[in-house]
């Protein structure tokens, strides 16, 4: 029932929670308490003011995810839990990556790569350029691989957010 994901890939759990103080603490405290190792968590408002959505990705096996879902279900602030099938889900992440760009060659290369990845240059200084990339985690990982050849000065990723396709 739960094995929507191939082994080795991340599971994506989307939970709708009450938008009130302490809920993020209760959820993250549960991960620590039950020894779940999560890859990322992102939180934000939803179409309804009283709810927020948390998108959690974690690496594990079916049994671990099943436990996670059952434990989350016990937190009374958790309204709904869905385990997302990546094949049927829109996945997005945003990354801001500050790259070393010492000479004009590097600058034009970075510009080219950013275009290929539909990224944007959002800041430039004498020796660095900051690129914004949006997409699936795979796409972002691919860009990071390239970025490494220039040298990454700083980076921030939002963590995955996701929504199921269709009505």
């Amino acid at each position: 029932m739960l094995s929507v994901n191939d082994k080795g890939e991340n599971y994506i759990v989307s939970i709708l929670v009450e938008n009130k103080p302490g809920v993020l603490y209760r959820v993250s405290n549960l991960f620590r308490r039950r020894n779940f190792n999560i890859e990322s968590i992102s939180v934000g408002p939803t179409e309804k003011r009283e709810f927020s959505r948390m998108t959690i990705t974690l690496n594990g096996d079916d049994a671990t995810v099943e436990q996670l879902v059952k434990q989350l279900a016990k937190i009374i602030d958790v309204v709904k839990i869905s385990l997302l099938n990546p094949k049927n889900t829109i996945l997005r992440e945003l990354a801001l990556i500050k790259l070393y760009a010492k000479d004009s060659r590097a600058r034009s290369d970075i510009l080219n790569y950013a275009q290929i990845f539909k990224g944007k240059i959002v800041d430039t200084t004498e020796d660095a350029m900051t690129v914004e990339v949006v997409g699936t985690p795979d796409k972002i990982n691919a860009f990071i691989k390239i970025a490494l050849s220039f040298g990454i000065k700083e980076m921030a990723r939002t963590g995955l957010t996701a929504l199921e396709r269709g009505g």
Binding site: A63, E66, Q67, K70, Q71, A73, K74
Partner: peptide, 8 residues
């Protein structure tokens, strides 16, 4: 009665 106990 606690589903999370099953299979834990």
């Amino acid at each position: 009665v606690d589903a999370s106990e099953i299979g834990k």
